[in-house]
Design a protein around this nucleic acid. Sequence first.
DNA 1: CAGCGGTTCATTTTT
DNA 2: TGAACCGCTG
Length: 760
Amino acid sequence: MSILEALNPAQCEAAEIVDGPLLILAGAGSGKTRVLTYRIAYLINELGVNPWNILAVTFTNKAAGEMRERVEKLVGGMAGQIWGGTFHSICARLLRFEAEPFGLDSNFTIYDEDDRRAAMRRVMEAHDIDDQDLKPRAVIAQISRAKNSMLDPHQFALEAGESPHQQQIAELFTSYEAELRRNNAFDFDDLLVEVVRQFDNHPEVLAKYQERFRFLLVDEYQDTNRPQYLFCRQLAAAHRNICVVGDDDQSIYQFRGADIRNILDFERDYPEAKVVRLEQNYRSTGRILAAANAVIQNNQRRKGKELWTQAGDGELIELVECDTDRREARYIVDKLRRFINYEGYSPGDTAILYRTNAQSRALEEELQRSGMPYIIVGSIRFYERKEIKDILAYLRLLANPADDINLLRIINVPRRGIGATSLERLQVFAREQSLGLYAALDHLDQVPRLGGRAVKSLTEFRDLAHGLVADRGGMDLPELGQAIFERSGYRQMLLDENSPEAEVRAENVDQLIAFMTEFSQTREEPTLESFLEEIALMSPLDESPDTSKMITLMTLHSAKGLEFPLVFLSGMEEHLFPTSRAIEESQTNPQAIEEERRLCYVGITRARERLFMTYACRRYTFGKMIETSPSRFLDELPSELVALRREVDFSARAPRPGAARHGSGNQIFAAPEKPKRKPEPKGVHYEWDEPPASQGADDLPTYIDASDPFAVGQWVKHPSWGRGEIVAREGQGEKMKLSIRFKGSQVKKVAVAYARLEPA
DNA sequence: CAGCGGTTCATTTTT
DNA sequence: TGAACCGCTG
């Protein structure tokens, strides 16, 4: 009996066709991941394929890990031998493994957006270009686009033609590339481009991998860009065993070079390709699916498919109009509390999705008041925090001393009295001698016009670095992190600051070191380089481990591939979703709106049972209240699927059908909510279903729970800051942080586990 | 050299 | 609204 009997006929076919190219067109919720895992298990268990011969490309590293786990359940420990990960992490590993034949230094650094910008600034300075009239960001965007089209600086210059502006960018492109090579660094785009070029130039290396990766699986194929497409084509050229899975309706990364043609033209690239369509949806209710189908139908450019389900209709989709973004947030949080308290949902069943990260702020404030556990995916990324980036910069310096950009970040952090003037002198010297800055530190006596104080400070820094390099061999990863934290004076700097914020930052560094410990215990090769690489290529989702227990807030992009029983799509407004940019662009190109619509489709299809879509009539934007209008996508929802309600006055719970008219007016008004009898709450219960009488300066109700000493509204005493009122809190248990308003009305953020707080 | 206060500018989305 | 950048002062 085959393991594939657990699959439906279409899924079974998709898992079984293992010879030659295969395109699986998998609609949202059609069991795609299930097919992929069974396919791999089938290859290994029933066809005796060595897992070592399988390469699985996924969209996040987390997804790769989950797939490996699921395969493991079917085939056992051998699953660990499957190569899996994102294009970027796979390519980074390839570049390190093959550094020698490729003529590279395997200790290269991977530049993120910040590093990239810093590098570009430096290049522009060298070219004497004022960054006011040519912004580094814009130049980088153009370079990135060029790389995603596989253009090198030379080809870019040819395409630029006569335009002096474009020629200037071409020059900057050339210098930027030189700068990165000098620093032994690659940016995100380079990782892919470099592998493709190297494979072209080293067919013997390519052949090795073609031989090894006899079975190629690529998930989210609709979001591949040109270099990724070429990479796949290179690997598959010999055996043509390539299985790609995708959904043209869920292509949402064209802004970063994804080319929808890669999926639309798959059958042209591989004429012998078989195509399997998965259209039965196992995720959502009939109404949710109908809404999704109705919206996406407005796109012209698609392969065309219609999802269907055997599940029932389910509830109506609720469309909620709120007068402000604040009210919208409050409505959502209030609704969540009810679902969690009385409808048997747990926080982990729920998600709030939005178009832009900026929208998370108002929602977060409301959630903080509520005390319900939540996690924001991606907006304030752990590895982008100053203190984390600083400590990482020290680590990167040890791994790759040739990286000036990195060294400049920390040479005066903590303050060592090394100022701009001294640094400039050092840089001029280094440039003249063709030395990296780190190497130049060994010749301080030869640097012209360097003051005695500066020499002393720079020597101090050099000795610090040398010391760490010398001792590195005898330390494991977390010890090294700890040593950097201590010896660099970073910990002392935070201690001296003696503020709650500094405490939190110290705690963050401790967290980083804790992760280093975990890393060195769980990874096969816990080297410094692999650690830095993993962090550099981490997606926001890879960073947040426990979305399963909390209300999850994230962008629609981050939500791709996920599902939740209860979903809120917030900010359904013109100029926000679709964005102003897309609207503007659609003046000249009607298809510009289509990617936004696909994003909307992705959002709708995340929901299993209940879907709420909300919009505000006025929204705080750039500190100003802006009048808004409902998103055009709402007009595309069939009226019979939707219940419309209005949230105007918070204290009046019942909706007030009223003045404002919406869009084409095809929505129904919901009957006023009938007063429900409260069932006995089960499990965790979040308080304040009935809001207490409003209090406080504004007319917003403040919720207070007297049994919880750290509830919002309670007073506490801080050893150094005195008495203060808790105005907000985040996190749980040991990680709980409080925002406290002390006298002088300054608000400080405090980690409960660190600050010795007393009730006051 | 560091710290302060003023100004300006920005929001897509992410590896 | 706020982060990020600039220029001035001590």
